[in-house]
């Protein structure tokens, strides 16, 4: 599975990745510094003096919440790594946007045929065996494209070789069950990443409930049918007894 490693200590803030992304995805030029329906990645300045920068983009979870949330399967995790979006299926319920733990998907609010917009990890390029546009454009190797397990090993190697410069954390190794975007850097940069992401894959939580449905339907259904049968039968028997007891009384009265 392919992945992207971002090393904040190597990044010089040139924004070559942002420009490459814009032209690769044919997005309009703009100076927006936050993710939007026209920006799939941004370079956020964390500390001006230290020249610390952080890339924001879709994390391409190994087990993505958005893909599990989508009722029509418009979002899918591909074997190669990218989490991709099929506009022709999308109904626009926006559950993917609610579901994403990293708050990444953006919506074309002003369009009459709105699309969900996010980084697709250059799906065509990756399918051709090329690296993503951002990784190719990066002059310092701060953004590196490669096999996920190899990149995790390399990330730890970089951390171990300069323990003072890096926080001992590969963001994305375990978060939300693992992601295909891995981030390392000094503590100051790592603090800017969302710490409230549980380690396990989130879709397991809904699947746990969904997988109980057949059993629940069978048990409750059988229970209701049984209860109804007993009640009906008792009512019928009750009717018989009342008529039986009533008839002699009526006869006696007349």
């Amino acid at each position: 599975m392919n992945a992207i490693l971002f090393d904040a200590n190597e990044c010089v803030g040139c924004k070559a990745c942002v420009y490459a992304c814009t032209s690769e995805n044919e997005l309009p030029d703009s100076d927006e510094d936050r993710l939007s329906d026209r920006r799939f990645t941004v370079l956020e300045e964390i500390d001006e003096d230290e020249e610390w920068y952080l890339r924001r983009m879709c994390m391409h979870c190994v087990d993505p919440s958005c893909a599990s949330a989508c009722p029509v399967g418009a979002l899918k995790k591909t074997d190669l790594g990218p989490v991709v979006y099929d506009f022709d299926k999308c109904i626009g319920c926006r559950y993917c946007m609610v579901a994403c733990p990293f708050n990444i998907p953006r919506y074309e609010w002003d369009s009459m045929t709105p699309r969900v917009r996010k980084c697709q990890m250059c799906r065509e390029r990756v399918a051709e065996g090329k690296s993503t546009a951002c990784a190719e454009a990066c002059p310092t190797g701060a953004t590196k494209f490669g096999e996920r397990s190899a990149l995790i090993a390399e990330a730890w190697q970089r951390i171990d070789s300069a323990p003072d410069a890096y926080a001992r954390h590969v963001y994305g190794e375990k978060e939300a069950g693992g992601t295909c975007v891995l981030i390392i850097g000094p503590q100051g940069v790592m603090d800017a990443l969302n710490p409230n992401i549980p380690d396990g894959p989130l879709p397991h939580r809904t699947w746990f409930v969904l997988s109980q449905i057949p059993a629940a339907v069978a048990v409750v259904g059988a229970g209701l049918v049984g209860v109804n049968w007993i009640i009906q039968r008792r009512m019928k028997l009750g009717d018989v007894t009342t008529t039986e007891t009533r008839e002699p009384t009526e006869g006696g009265a007349s």
């Binding site: 319920c93 926006r94 045929t113």
Partner: peptide
Amino acid sequence: FDLGHPWRLWHPLVMWNHHSVMFEVS
């Protein structure tokens, strides 16, 4: 009103994702 593509309301009936709670709800 809320769906971005209201005319695709029927999609979940044809395009299945049984891992989705929203699919089950629809």
